[in-house]
Design a protein around this nucleic acid. Sequence first.
DNA 1: CACTCGCTTGAGATCGATCTCATTGGCGAG
DNA 2: CTCGCCAATGAGATCGATCTCAAGCGAGTG
Lengths: 348, 348
Amino acid sequence: MSDLKDVARVAGVSRATAARCFASPEVVRPTTREQVFAAARELGFRPNLLGRQLRLQTTQLIGVVVPSLLNPVFAEQFQAMERAARSRGYNLLLATTDYSAERESAVVEELLRQRVDGLVLTVTDAHSNRVLQSLSTEDTPFVLAYHQPGSTEYSAVSVDNRAGMALATRYLLDAGHRRIGMVAGPTLQSDRARQRYAGYCDAMGERGTSQPPITAMPIIEMPSHTQADFAALAPLLGGHHAPTALVCSNDLLAISLIAELRRHGWAVPQQLSIIGFDGIAIGTQMHPTLCSVVQPVAALATTVIDQLLAQIAGAAPTSHCLPCHIRPGESSQPYNQPYEETLHDPLQ
Amino acid sequence: MSDLKDVARVAGVSRATAARCFASPEVVRPTTREQVFAAARELGFRPNLLGRQLRLQTTQLIGVVVPSLLNPVFAEQFQAMERAARSRGYNLLLATTDYSAERESAVVEELLRQRVDGLVLTVTDAHSNRVLQSLSTEDTPFVLAYHQPGSTEYSAVSVDNRAGMALATRYLLDAGHRRIGMVAGPTLQSDRARQRYAGYCDAMGERGTSQPPITAMPIIEMPSHTQADFAALAPLLGGHHAPTALVCSNDLLAISLIAELRRHGWAVPQQLSIIGFDGIAIGTQMHPTLCSVVQPVAALATTVIDQLLAQIAGAAPTSHCLPCHIRPGESSQPYNQPYEETLHDPLQ
DNA sequence: CACTCGCTTGAGATCGATCTCATTGGCGAG
DNA sequence: CTCGCCAATGAGATCGATCTCAAGCGAGTG
């Protein structure tokens, strides 16, 4: 592997001059420059970024931490960030955590050793996270994606999770539903799920004076972030006060829930309306198509990169909140029957 | 940011001794070692991998090139490779290409400048690919994923695409189908799609003597690798010789096809059976559930990493072919009607 | 003719970790 | 008591690119 020293020797100049031909060609005499380029071509010279990175104390690398690429939201986010970063001369170093806090610490440490210029973090719970606390004392800038700044002062880019879920819940209320539940993964671990539950409660509370009365139900917790389990849901279905609609903390969970219901003889939306959260593309290919709260993933990714690069350039951390909207779908339909009747239960 | 020199100074030893405490602790006197570790803890020392990488001429980085993470096959592949690599002390540097040959060249060059120790490549077409040819003359080892070694001598890990698609086609033949078509993305660009078409032709040819005669149909080409377009399909449907089943070159295309058919009033599997290829997880959550040829993605990813690390350690390139199998699903059902009748066409 | 200015180039230091080789100190054997 | 060996440590070079600072050189000017 030929290096700049070889190029310089073949071109008959010093290493400094050879380096200048690439870094600031205009200060080198044209004839000299051409000799250097010719030597570089001849030798198949490929710059070794390690030397440059060590000398300049910058890697042009951005570390990206996401829970899992199996969730299309994060896959799409990564692709959009990659595009934005690459066009500005940065590469991404990706690490996934499988929603594990230990892995979050481990990969962040690894990325810092690699001397990334900045970090984009999507962790499971931004509030109870030690990594973030210790990171605040470091000089590596970072931006949280999909997290809303809470009491803490981190730089973050997100949609308003609470408002988004309130949107979905109101959509169901406007469609005549009165008994609405919310399904989520392990809630204690995920600040997103908690914020979304708060939005659900907001919307339910707003109509508290209607007849029959509308009240928020306790969260229906699933063992996994993206996998529904019928057993955890069955006790709530089929009774006098069974929900006629469910909002889900994310789309994969909603899709899994619809499939799980179908496997046990429940039809969506005929017997139960479902709304997801994220707006992943595959939702529009489902049968029924998935009604969902769409997050502007590409815009979010671009904003994250913009903000991070600004911080790297010395700007102060800021936070952004992007708008989300409802994408209607067949999985949610209006509810017209009187609420006094018992709902049909195919299992009895 | 404190470095090893600071640690050495605080501990009152030389840089060499401080370095030895981490690289080969057993040669350092225990009391000295403890002083160094104490100094490191006190200063919050974090090794700078750039120095080590430059000195040792190894980055412990593996470059990964895939077309798109929006296809769950590649997302799952990446996660499995990340797990395998990380447990062996390697990190992954990921780049996506959006199925563009120019981006393939560009990102490979970028990864080589970054001095990755090896590359895992999933390109659109391994045969007509200049990157691979030039890479062969370099000393960076690489392994192709999801490509079968053709005439060329690259190291590759794949399933037998041809046999896999023959499996799917025979599955339909055994279920009574006689007029079977194959749907694919831009075939000329993808060696995988071409190999799968060959497998389809194999299976169709095997039954060439049945009554009524079975013949392979020309490939039905879609404008995108993962998006079906009803307009390109409509002319074939509804006539006397319309297919009763379709095999697809990948699962995303199959899912998109089912949705597109439904949007235009065609029911799967009642009017048309569909089989996909890849075996992505979301297929089991669909309605109808997707019948598919399952690739052992996790095993493939592990094999790729094993093979690449072996090559990095000096072993010769080898190729592997893993078995795939049919996962039954509701999108394919037996065909029992006589083939002389005209199929029902809801559009006429 | 001497001097300065500006353009172009080179020598050497630097980034951080590691390796080689040499040196020191201590201890047992003769 | 002295020699020699081994364990422990340090000085300096190295990886590749870049930067600083100084020097060389030609042209223009007083």
